[in-house]
Structure formats: C-alpha cells, structure tokens
Amino acid sequence: MTTTMILPSTVNVGLRRGGVELLQFRRDRTAVVFTFAFPAMLLLLFGTIFGDSYDETGVSASQVYSASMIAYGILSTAFVTMGSGVAMDREDGTLKRLHGTPITPAAYLLGKLILVLVLSVAEAALLILVGVLVFGMPVPDAAHWVTFAWLFLLSTFACTACGIAVSSIVKHARTAGAILNVPVVALQFISGVFIHPITQLPSWLITVASFFPVKWMSQGFRYVFLPDRMKQFEAAGQWELGRTALVLGAWCVIGLALCLVTFRWTEKDR
C-alpha cells in the first residue's frame, strides 16, 4: 500500500492559525476590553455632547456619529491591531519560530485576517447597538445591509493590508501604538468622522482625505444607516457608492502589493 503524504494547504494552516490568534486574544482581557470599549466610549461622548438635530432633516448629530464611527471602529481594530500585532510577533521571535514550520507568509497573514474580521464584526455590532439603542439610529432595510456587507469587507481588508505594510517600519513593538495611531487620529478629523458636515473643512483638506479610504468608509456607512436626504451634507452632495467601491478596491490592491513587498520574518530580512 502506498502512503501518500498530504501537505497542509495554505487555507487549512491559515484557519488553524486564525484559531490560535483568537485564543491568544481572548486570554488577554485588557486587550479585549480596550479594543471594544474605546470606540464605543468615543461614540457615547460625541453623541451625548453634540447630539443636536440638523434642523431641516430631523436627523440628530448623535445618529450621524453613530454611523460614521463604524469606520473608526474598523480602522482602529484592523489597522492598529494588525500593525502592532505583526510588529510584536516579529520582535518577540514568534515569526522567527513560525518560519521554521510549514506555515507560509500567506497562511500567517490569513490567520491574522481571521482575527481582524472577527474583531471588526464584534466592534461594528457593538457600535451599531449603541447607535440604535442609545441614539435612535435607524435600522436599515435589506438592500442597505447588502451595501453594508461589501463595504465592511472592503474596508476591513484594505485597513488590514495597510496595517501589515506599515508594521514593517515599526522598529519596536512598544512604540507601535503611538506610530499607528498618528495616521488613525489624523484621518478621522479630515475624513468626516469627527467633523460633520465634512464641508466645514477646507476644500483642499477634503481633496487630501479623498485619496485615503477612511473618507469613503465613513461616507458609505452614513449611506447605509441615515436617510437619503442626508446626502446633501456630503462633499459632492451625493453618496457616490461607485466611487467608494473603486477607492476601497484600489486600496485593497495597494495594501496587498505593499504586504508582498514589505513582509519579513525577522528584522534582518530585507
């Protein structure tokens, strides 16, 4: 009888690695609390302090923040968690040890992507729950949930890929949070997440924000959860779903290309 050795596929190894990542994250209770609590806390603060309605629409500012902050939750969870996680694995030798196993870079990154997807789903669910129950954000119909699905997936993948790429410039894991949060905070202010209507910003700043995914993420989620009459407060006066998909898709490709170019197992791998 001939025994055939079946090598583990990239997908199988990646799924198993994803299970390990989730288990490790669940055991770190501090990370669990702060990962989910911080965006929700910001939403409660912004929604409570700036809760007045837009007179001509009847939509409250707290409902606008509830929709927009979903983009912040995904960016924070995917970009920061992924970037700092890869940097930590590289610094503490986890990647070096994994390099001596059958795991491939694709399988390792798939495991990280599974972790980020699960965390992002939980984060988005928490923010939506706060928005609906606390601030009365409208629950969308089935068609809008379809838009939410592709918007969520494109946003999560784009932010995850960019987080992996940026992790290559993080020299020490202890500084990862500070480095990664700089673009996160800056993009929130220029992309219409913390400041709405976005037209309050200088036109050149809106143009700069348009090159990055966060503006389109927050605009897309506002389309999903807010009435159609709220499109008048967007930069173009329209929801621009086609352009949103195009920009996010482009960032998925750009992020993936940067991952392939920048990923390394150790600091010495150049």
Rank of each mutant, 00 (worst) to 15 (best):
T57W: 00
K96Q: 13
F135D: 05
F263S: 09
E91L: 05
L117N: 11
I49L: 01
Q238M: 14
G242K: 04
F263V: 08
Q188L: 14
T244K: 03
M69K: 00
R26W: 06
I164M: 03
F225M: 11
K215S: 07
S84G: 13
G85M: 02
G83Q: 05
T147P: 10
Y72L: 13
Y65R: 01
N181G: 07
K171R: 14
G47V: 08
L75T: 13
A78S: 14
P39A: 00
C159T: 12
H196Y: 14
S120Y: 02
K96F: 07
L115V: 07
G220R: 03
I169R: 05
D55G: 07
V182T: 14
Y65Q: 05
H172I: 10
V247I: 06
A87G: 08
S191F: 08
L246M: 15
A176Y: 04
S53T: 12
L110P: 13
R16M: 11
G237F: 00
A158E: 04
E240G: 09
L241M: 06
D52E: 15
T2M: 02
L260E: 11
I164N: 02
H144V: 09
V20H: 07
F36Y: 13
H196M: 15
M41G: 15
A107I: 11
L110Y: 09
I169E: 03
C162M: 14
P102G: 07
D55I: 02
E123G: 15
Q219K: 08
T266I: 10
P140H: 01
I254H: 07
H172M: 10
T207H: 11
M230W: 09
S66T: 05
A178H: 15
V184W: 02
L23V: 13
A250N: 07
W145P: 15
R26N: 06
T48R: 01
L115H: 07
L113V: 12
P8I: 01
D141I: 02
P138E: 09
V13P: 10
T262R: 05
G177V: 04
A235M: 03
I6E: 10
T57F: 01
D89A: 13
I74K: 00
D55L: 03
F135S: 08
I195Y: 06
R97G: 08
L7A: 14
D89M: 10
D92T: 12
L109W: 01
S62A: 15
L226W: 04
V33A: 10
